[in-house]
């Protein structure tokens, strides 16, 4: 059994892991391009950040297993993501309070070229 899996080149090596991160990143990309709600877009961005953090840990594990540089970076990525979400969500809540939507398609106030009195 192990010989068959390994013989087919299926044992997860660095390439398999990196293809996985690319797939997760691509799914997030799709979400960013199709989501209409800003909260949905930010969730897709979290997918991207998560896949990038995963890729740091993958490289850490395969290229330099005795060190933890990639894991340290992943810890920072998680912390930065938290900060980003805090500010992002604060802005969303504030926007919802004044315009009752966070739908990116309906947010076109800034495009209106009306003359101010």
């Amino acid at each position: 059994m192990p010989d068959i899996l390994a013989g087919l080149g299926l044992a997860p090596g660095i390439v398999h892991w990196m293809v996985l991160t690319a797939a997760l990143f691509a799914v997030g990309l799709y979400g960013i391009l199709t989501r209409r709600s800003a909260v949905g877009v930010l969730m897709a961005v979290e997918l991207l950040l998560n896949s990038a953090a995963l890729s740091f840990v993958v490289f850490n594990h395969f290229r330099m297993p005795a060190l933890v540089d990639g894991q340290v970076m992943a810890v920072f990525v998680i912390a930065v993501a938290a900060a980003e979400v805090v500010v992002g969500m604060a802005v969303f809540v504030a926007l919802y309070r004044v315009s009752h939507t966070v739908d990116l398609n309906r947010l076109d106030r800034l495009k209106n070229d009306e003359v101010k009195p």
Binding site: A38, L42, L95, V98, S99, R109, L110
Partner: peptide, 15 residues
Amino acid sequence: AGSQEAGLKYVVMGA
């Protein structure tokens, strides 16, 4: 609302 909308677009693009 304009400022909030600017903030929202900046958040999404920046992230």
